[in-house]
Amino acid sequence: MIGAFIDGPLWYFSLTVFLLGVAWRLAGIVRRGVAADLAPARGDAARGALRTIFTRALPRRPVLHGGRVQMIAGYLFHLGLLVLLLFAQPHVDFYAERIAGFGWSTLPHWGFILASEIAFAGLILLWIYRVMNPVTRLLSGFGDHVASLLVFMVMFSGCLALGQSHEALRLLHLFLAELLLLYFPFSSLMHTFTFVLSRGYTGAAMARKGVNA
């Protein structure tokens, strides 16, 4: 019965909260608006926005030394997680069945394991850095640790459920993923979407001034 609840109503509920919550947060940002810049532009804002949206994904040389742990761990975690989410066989099957109605090529088993290990290494490194480094320790709030913990638990339960031999483990993984979806719009995990806005705004403003940001 609990299984049916997790597989059915709770899934739809968490997905709805996630979608509405994300839309509400994004609408809140857009609704606040940004005043039109009356200073004559030196460069093209749209081009600058587009450029910065992509180039800020690359490491910035001036902080390569001091920020190497965050940067390396950040790449490991995000790339590993992206591969897992988009190309792991169980996930693709799930999307095909529940959302998209079609599937796509998936990773071989060894690729799945490798991506998981990379993502785990990145996440654990990021969290250790968060609690050990004086700056990130000072900056981090309860919500940041909750987000890290939830993502870790979802990934860990996903590994446990990898064999797909125990239904309970699959349900545990789904349940934790649903909790993550519920928490997502109210947390810093929103950067998954808002990074486009923040990089875009800065890229546009700086490009107007003639600076490649």
């Binding site: 606040r32 910035r60 965050q70 940067m71 990130t136 940041d144 810093s188 923040s198 705004y201």
Partner: peptide, 13 residues
Amino acid sequence: VAAYFSSCVRCGL
């Protein structure tokens, strides 16, 4: 500002 705070992951870079 709202987009900036929403995006910040407190990485300290």
